[in-house]
Every structure is written in C-alpha cells, then in structure tokens.
Simulated assay, not measured.
Amino acid sequence: MIPYRTLSLSLMCSTVLGTISCVSTAEARQQQQETREDARETRTTARERWDALVTQSFRNRPKTQAHPSLDYWDYSNGLPNVLIYGDSISIDYTATVRAELDGKANVIRLPANGSDSGMIISKMKAMHTSMSDPALSDPWAMTWDVIHFNAGLHDLKYISAGKMDKQKGTQVNSIGTYTSNLREAIGYFREIAPDAALIFATTTPVPEGEPGRFVEDAARYNEAAIDVMMSADVAINDLYSFTLPHLDAWIVAPGNVHFTPAASELQGIEVARIIGHHLDSDGD
C-alpha cells in the first residue's frame, strides 16, 4: 500500500462550487504558464499603441495620418536606433531616410508634428512614456544612437485668432525664447541618450508670399540656432542651404512652405547621407 504522504507531494487541489479538483504540481505549473502567455498575447502591442498615437495626433487630418513616414517600423535588435524629430517637412522626407538606411539603422520619427521648439521635451516625454509602458506586450527598451531634430517653422510664424497672419498676428516664439528652448532640448536629449550623436537640421526656407511667416526670419532663426548648436557641440545638417537654390522649383505652390514629393525625396537622401556619416563615424 502506497503511503499517503507520497500521494500528497505531487498534487495541488482546489475547491470550486463545493467540488474538489486536484491536478499534479507539474500540470498546475503548466496551466499557470499558459495563463501568463495568454495574458501577454492579449495585451496591447507596441505597434497598436503607435498606431493609436498617430491616429490621436492626426485625427482631423486623414491624409497625413496615412503618410508612410508615420508607419511603425520593422524593428531589428541588431541595428542602431535613429530618431527623427521635426515638423511636417520631416514627415515628408522620413520615408526616404528609412529606405536609404534600410539594413543599416532603425529609423523612427515622432508620431506627430513636432511643432515649435517649446514642444520638443513634452512631445518626446509623451512618446517615451506611452511606448515604454510596461503594460504593453513588447514595450520599448531601446537607446538612441542618433537624434536628428529640427524646430523653427512653427516658432517664427505669426498667429491671429488661430490663423496665420503676419500682419496682425503675434509671433509664436521670439528668437530669444527659441534659442532658450533649443538649449533645454539639447540638455534633455543628452539626459535620455548620453551617447547619442545629436544632429540639428536647419529650418527650410520660407517662400515669398507665405501668409504667416516673413522670408528673412528663416535665415535669422537659423543663424541663432547655429550659434546654439556650435556652442553645444551639436552637428548641423544645413537643409536651408541645401534647399534654397531650388526653392521656387521645389515648393508645392507659391507661398507654401511644403515641398513636392520629388523634392522631399532629395531632402531625405541628404538627411540619410548626414545620418549615415555619423553612424559610420560611431562604428570606427
């Protein structure tokens, strides 16, 4: 006769609605493991969270929301991570940057319009908090190797009653506020990614006839930004000088700061070239 104690060592029992149910310890552990795996599978994924962030940012602009630059990326753990932060100009060239750096880097851009310089830190924190949420099935656990950033077009515009108006409006940020915001952003980037290469892209030119911006302000704000970057030892990608000779041919319409798809592709190739140079230098 088998001793009672031998039976009791290998069983786990529970009572449900007055019925005693027993399973082996091994079976119980297997069931617990399967329950945990099922719970993970039903969690929100990073891709789903990303798509929700994009939808929230562009809920009233479906055409922008569907832009390929805002898509989640095919992430590879073996590649360096590149962040692109910027306004709609960068949204238009990010897809090309990804294509140019395919197999060389994970290229991620902010899932929103970066807006003016005063928004950099808050938008970055919002993205990181959401994407590193431990409740996700696959939260971010990455570090940035390169941060390519820009702000300027939204700083120098004039707004009146919610619309651009350079005659009656108030400028979003003075040069003094702009440069102060940039210094704070640099400090923040170096806090969250101390080993990352920082690259600042100068603001692209403003064409004649633009309703909310003065042509000369783009050059003025860029000059001030370059001084900040040089003093902080931040690399500069001079997209202003790259774009200026072709401005009339590249803009989508007279007085519009946006560029044709062909022009955005050329800008993206240039951005990828600059980023690639820093990736190669880091690997030497």
Rank of each mutant, 00 (worst) to 15 (best):
residue 99 A to S: 15
residue 34 E to W: 13
residue 53 L to Y: 05
residue 78 G to M: 10
residue 235 A to Q: 11
residue 47 R to C: 10
residue 252 V to W: 05
residue 219 A to K: 08
residue 118 G to Y: 09
residue 43 R to H: 13
residue 177 T to N: 00
residue 244 L to D: 05
residue 185 A to P: 02
residue 240 Y to F: 14
residue 268 G to F: 03
residue 81 N to W: 10
residue 121 I to L: 13
residue 271 V to Q: 05
residue 228 V to P: 00
residue 141 A to T: 01
residue 38 D to F: 14
residue 4 Y to I: 06
residue 39 A to Q: 15
residue 208 E to S: 05
residue 253 A to Y: 11
residue 251 I to D: 06
residue 43 R to K: 15
residue 179 T to H: 00
residue 129 T to G: 08
residue 38 D to N: 14
residue 2 I to S: 02
residue 52 A to Q: 14
residue 268 G to E: 08
residue 233 D to R: 12
residue 233 D to C: 07
residue 254 P to V: 13
residue 123 K to F: 07
residue 101 L to M: 11
residue 200 F to M: 05
residue 252 V to L: 06
residue 218 A to W: 00
residue 59 R to I: 11
residue 248 D to F: 03
residue 175 I to C: 00
residue 181 N to Q: 02
residue 60 N to R: 14
residue 226 I to F: 02
residue 135 A to P: 00
residue 65 Q to I: 07
residue 162 G to D: 09
residue 281 S to R: 11
residue 58 F to R: 07
residue 171 Q to E: 06
residue 4 Y to K: 05
residue 278 H to R: 11
residue 116 D to E: 14
residue 190 R to W: 03
residue 102 D to T: 13
residue 153 L to T: 10
residue 239 L to P: 01
residue 78 G to K: 10
residue 61 R to T: 10
residue 58 F to T: 10
residue 180 S to D: 00
residue 119 M to V: 08
residue 189 F to W: 09
residue 279 L to P: 02
residue 108 I to Q: 12
residue 275 I to C: 04
residue 270 E to L: 04
residue 147 I to S: 01
residue 203 T to G: 03
residue 228 V to H: 01
residue 5 R to C: 00
residue 248 D to H: 05
residue 252 V to G: 04
residue 32 Q to K: 13
residue 188 Y to K: 02
residue 142 M to V: 08
residue 272 A to D: 08
residue 87 D to W: 04
residue 202 T to N: 04
residue 30 Q to K: 11
residue 115 S to I: 04
residue 243 T to D: 04
residue 214 F to M: 00
residue 193 A to L: 07
residue 134 P to F: 00
residue 172 V to P: 02
residue 169 G to I: 06
residue 148 H to I: 01
residue 209 G to K: 03
residue 130 S to W: 02
residue 132 S to I: 02
residue 81 N to I: 11
residue 200 F to Q: 06
residue 14 S to I: 14
residue 32 Q to T: 14
residue 29 R to H: 12
residue 194 P to Q: 09
residue 188 Y to R: 03
residue 270 E to W: 06
residue 246 H to I: 05
residue 218 A to N: 01
residue 272 A to L: 07
residue 48 E to G: 12
residue 107 V to A: 10
residue 74 D to C: 09
residue 226 I to S: 01
residue 121 I to S: 11
residue 194 P to Y: 10
residue 240 Y to Q: 09
residue 21 S to A: 14
residue 22 C to F: 11
residue 86 G to D: 13
residue 156 L to G: 04
residue 153 L to A: 08
residue 228 V to E: 00
residue 169 G to S: 04
residue 43 R to N: 12
residue 87 D to L: 07
residue 158 Y to C: 04
residue 230 M to L: 08
residue 254 P to N: 12
residue 115 S to A: 12
residue 82 V to D: 12
residue 126 A to S: 15
residue 38 D to A: 15
residue 280 D to K: 13
residue 225 A to N: 03
residue 8 S to P: 00
residue 27 E to I: 09
residue 232 A to H: 09
residue 221 Y to P: 00
residue 189 F to M: 05
residue 274 I to V: 15
residue 127 M to I: 03
residue 133 D to L: 02
residue 41 E to H: 15
residue 122 S to V: 10
residue 260 T to F: 01
residue 58 F to A: 09
residue 278 H to V: 03
